[in-house]
Design a protein around this nucleic acid. Sequence first.
DNA 1: CTGAAAGCGCTTACAG
DNA 2: CTGAAAGCGCTTACAG
Lengths: 347, 347
Amino acid sequence: MTCCGQDSPSRHREGSVVKNITISDVAEALGVSKTTVSRAISGKGRIGKETRERVLAYIEENNYKPSVIAKGLAQSKTYNIGVMMPAEYDIVDLPFFQNCLFGIQEVAAMKDYDILLSISHPGDGEQLKRVLSNRKVDGVILMRTFVKDLQAGLLAKTDLPFVTIGTTDVEGAVQVDSDHKNACRELTSVLLKKQLKKIALVGGDKGHVVTQKRFQGYREAFLDCGVPLQENLIFLDMEGPDVLEQQMEEILVQGAEVILCMDDMLCSRVLKKLRTRKIRVPKDVKVASFYHSTILEQNVPSITSLSFDGKELGQMACRRLMEQIEGENPQQVTVLGYRIIMADSTE
Amino acid sequence: MTCCGQDSPSRHREGSVVKNITISDVAEALGVSKTTVSRAISGKGRIGKETRERVLAYIEENNYKPSVIAKGLAQSKTYNIGVMMPAEYDIVDLPFFQNCLFGIQEVAAMKDYDILLSISHPGDGEQLKRVLSNRKVDGVILMRTFVKDLQAGLLAKTDLPFVTIGTTDVEGAVQVDSDHKNACRELTSVLLKKQLKKIALVGGDKGHVVTQKRFQGYREAFLDCGVPLQENLIFLDMEGPDVLEQQMEEILVQGAEVILCMDDMLCSRVLKKLRTRKIRVPKDVKVASFYHSTILEQNVPSITSLSFDGKELGQMACRRLMEQIEGENPQQVTVLGYRIIMADSTE
DNA sequence: CTGAAAGCGCTTACAG
DNA sequence: CTGAAAGCGCTTACAG
């Protein structure tokens, strides 16, 4: 059945390999050299105005897209950045991560870079090693840091530029972080000034740098306000399946007036326990949290919390990475702000 | 201060470009040709056992990693797959997406493929166009489909292999999906058989194929059970800021005995409204949801819901894509199962 | 079993 | 202003 022939030139029968149009095709069609075509596109090197326009017009018309990969090979670049995303199902500040990714992509795209994503479990260096050995990236962004950071450590031994979202003590690491310490310090102060002295601090993995930072802010607030800190109100490493649930009794026994949670997932669990125990928020006990994510968005009462701009963080991280890739010497540590959102749960 | 000299060979002073060791270096060092080295690594073509081992040993020892990019260029492949992730902040079935990504990465890595991630807002084809024109991927996975699917449409006009997670009517698309229709049908049936006849259906964007599928399953369940379906209990397109909140009155006025929500975020909003109105679950009204995600995990009472395995979906999608890339003709439609999790909210 | 050479699709000194 | 040629780091017929 020979018919129509209306197939667009790029449609092919199954299995046939499609030859994309290349720079040679363009050069040949125009009767110029590849060099000239290349120059017209890149804007580098001298080239006659008329020639350039002729090339550009042809390219536009024939929908020629240079192969970024071939370009990269010639320049010893990849135009990719590796992004290592943590796979921790229980720490669901995911909307935050998605925003982060979005920010990264936004600035990466401006420089014609793409994101090579890799998800890895904490403590697992294999994914990163794979990325490194594949030689497919010009730099990498770590979306989360750890106190003893395996990935940052690996990268530091490399000459590949990288930036961490989150603080790290790995020597030479360029880092971008929200001001977790001062955020927690300010929120704690606000609570203390409301005459709420017994603030239980509920946090996750002590191995996360953020956990430490927040804890520090909490302590400083007590110092600032001249209130003695009670060690028995500190509850860290609470992300295990039932740890927090069991410690809740203790928290209440200690007479906590406020429960300050380091992330919304923990807070959600605290709220559940309180609900089951018929303890009312904020009447019987106040509650505050971090992240202001969708997880608690619908809670009644609304939850006082700290909010960080994931997108901004992502953008900044990517900018810092680009600076390094382009050979500049970026600011080592960049600290971004936060917002305190006061709501019903601490009234 | 000339000291130590203990720097590992790959450490360099600032700015110095590091020449990675190449196949030529290896060949030269061993006194063989690049061809031989290449063959030793790839396992293709005849090569003496002893030679191969000598090459492999040297490579191992000197930590030589072939450039996947150069390899790709020579083979007209990229060893990347593009993954288009939706950016919809309100539809937070994100743990689901993360699982999906994880599944994709898992099987991709087995074939030495990497993930090129792109986040795009619904209706925005620019990101995909960028990916396509950059020529950096051998295929793409769409993580969500729409009734009129812009991205699938674009891809179909291409000769690039792609697979959608979610059903689509785009001609020729290879698709992998959970059995949303039957899932919803079965859950609805279960409820109907509990003599709960007035089941309000609360759903999101009618433009999402899943919304349609579920709606269909809901209808079929009514047919199966011989219960007439009440149009006034159908509430779709509820994801706007206040739409659902306003419709809640209507839902209650219509005397709904159960509110069946198409995703956990919607369900969370329903629960909030009920709580504010002092309407008790399951005493006054039953509630059921989809996804079984962390958002509702901590809810009291526990919520009856459908659960889908994101990771499995991702793995399958990636397998189907690989099959296409390798020139096989994959199954057009793959349907995966679901689980029904009965809990307190419908007791 | 092994190698020289051409090629993948670009860029970039160098020369004119 | 323009082009021939070498090179980026691999693979793969082809010949021996």
